[in-house]
Each structure stands twice: as structure tokens, then as C-alpha cells.
Amino acid sequence: MIYVFKTSVSSKELVHRLKSQLDKIFVDGKWNFDLEDSDNILRLDVSRVQRDETISYLKSQKIHCQELH
């Protein structure tokens, strides 16, 4: 399933800092940030469990993450 989120991640450095944990969450899924988009989009191609785990992780890092429908 593909999920799309508006985030407060605005730099490649922050993406790099998040990468190792996101890679652990998404062993079988895919994720990417589009920092060129004004909403700093995060796209997830994952299961629902991974989606929920990702939201929890980002919030624990004080990162805004709002699902777009």
C-alpha cells in the first residue's frame, strides 16, 4: 500500500539522520522524501503496521507527519 505524508523534514541531513531507523522499519518496503515539494512529502510503500510504526518514530523525533488523502 502507498501512503503519502506532509512532513517537517526539510533537509538532506535530517533524511540522512533518519535513514538507518527507517531502513530497519522498512525491511520489505520502500520510502522516500521529496524535499523539492513544498510539503516535504514522505512516500511509503509498506504494510499498515509499518505505516503506524513510521508515524510513531517520526513523532518521537519531534517531526510533524500528517497523512494526506
Rank of each mutant, 00 (worst) to 15 (best):
M1C: 00
I2H: 04
I2S: 06
I2W: 02
I2M: 10
Y3C: 00
F5G: 05
F5C: 05
K6N: 13
K6G: 01
T7V: 02
V9H: 05
V9R: 06
V9I: 13
S10T: 01
K12D: 10
E13W: 03
E13R: 12
L14R: 11
V15N: 01
H16S: 09
H16D: 04
H16T: 04
R17D: 05
L18G: 03
L18N: 04
L18S: 03
K19V: 03
S20A: 11
Q21V: 12
D23C: 02
K24C: 04
I25V: 09
I25F: 08
V27R: 08
V27H: 06
D28V: 06
G29M: 05
G29W: 05
G29K: 02
K30D: 11
K30A: 08
W31D: 01
W31H: 04
W31T: 05
N32I: 04
N32H: 13
N32C: 06
D34G: 07
D34V: 14
D34F: 14
D34L: 10
L35W: 03
L35F: 01
E36P: 00
E36D: 05
D37N: 15
D37G: 01
S38K: 15
S38W: 12
S38I: 13
I41C: 02
I41V: 13
L42H: 05
L42F: 08
R43T: 11
L44T: 10
L44N: 00
D45V: 11
S47E: 12
R48Y: 12
V49Q: 06
V49I: 09
Q50K: 11
Q50F: 08
R51V: 09
R51I: 07
D52A: 07
D52W: 09
E53D: 10
E53N: 10
S56R: 14
Y57H: 05
L58N: 03
L58F: 11
L58D: 02
K59Y: 06
S60A: 11
S60R: 13
Q61E: 11
Q61S: 06
K62S: 14
I63Y: 04
H64L: 11
C65K: 10
Q66M: 09
Q66H: 15
Q66S: 10
Q66C: 07
Q66E: 14
Q66V: 12
E67S: 07
E67M: 15
E67L: 15
L68M: 13
L68T: 08
L68W: 06
H69L: 11
H69N: 13
